[in-house]
């Protein structure tokens, strides 16, 4: 349990640094450190599938953040009205904490899950699906509808990104547009 708390504190420190530091590169690297600590946390909690996915997606997000957004002069909205902004933020944090306290009280204790559905999966999963990786059998057999929805979301996201940044729609800004196959 001690290592979990160390990793949690590391993640919180990384998140605070990522918000507070002025340099963009340091901020992106702090986000990466928080993600790496999260990946190790998943590994300690015996969820290697989630750990692999978290690590890999973290690397991809880091590369995209560094390559695609770092050199642009992003505007900082730090002007005026800080009293009102801080007041609204504190109010939202208090409301969120109260609601979260009431929700988290209903959850089972850490380390003692309910296992009402998971018990059946653990017992019958290998016989019914034939997959020895039970996570794979859950996401692609028992809960394949969820995976279908997730795939649809990713497809829509790719189409959205490509249609926003394609060159055909940006003819007015640049003077000349050299067209490659899109």
């Amino acid at each position: 349990m001690v290592e979990l708390y160390i990793l949690l504190i590391l993640m919180i420190i990384g998140a605070i640094i990522a918000i507070e530091v002025k340099d963009m590169l340091s901020s992106v690297i702090a986000v990466g450190a928080a993600g790496l600590a999260l990946s190790i946390t998943f590994l300690i909690l015996k969820a290697p599938d989630v750990a692999i996915t978290q690590l890999v997606v973290e690397i991809l997000a880091l590369i995209i953040l560094i390559r695609a957004t770092l050199k642009k002069d992003l505007p900082f909205s730090a002007t005026g009205r800080w009293f009102l902004n801080t007041l609204i933020t504190v109010a939202f944090v208090v409301v969120f904490l109260v609601i979260a306290k009431r929700c988290l009280d209903d959850l089972p204790q850490f380390g003692q899950p309910l296992m009402r559905v998971a018990k059946i999966y653990l017992k019958q999963g290998l016989a019914k699906t034939g997959a020895t990786n039970l996570v794979g059998s859950v996401i692609l057999d028992y809960r394949a509808y969820d995976t279908l929805g997730e795939a649809t979301i990713l497809f829509t996201a790719v189409i959205g990104v490509l249609s926003i940044v394609r060159r055909v729609g940006r003819k007015k800004v640049g003077t000349e547009v050299k067209e490659e196959d899109e």
Binding site: P48, D49, I52, T53, V56, G130, A131, T132, N133, V135, G136, S137, I139, L140
Partner: peptide, 9 residues
């Protein structure tokens, strides 16, 4: 389907 991992990762 045998070891940790899968299509997404």
């Amino acid at each position: 389907h045998v070891s940790p991992g899968g299509g997404f990762a």
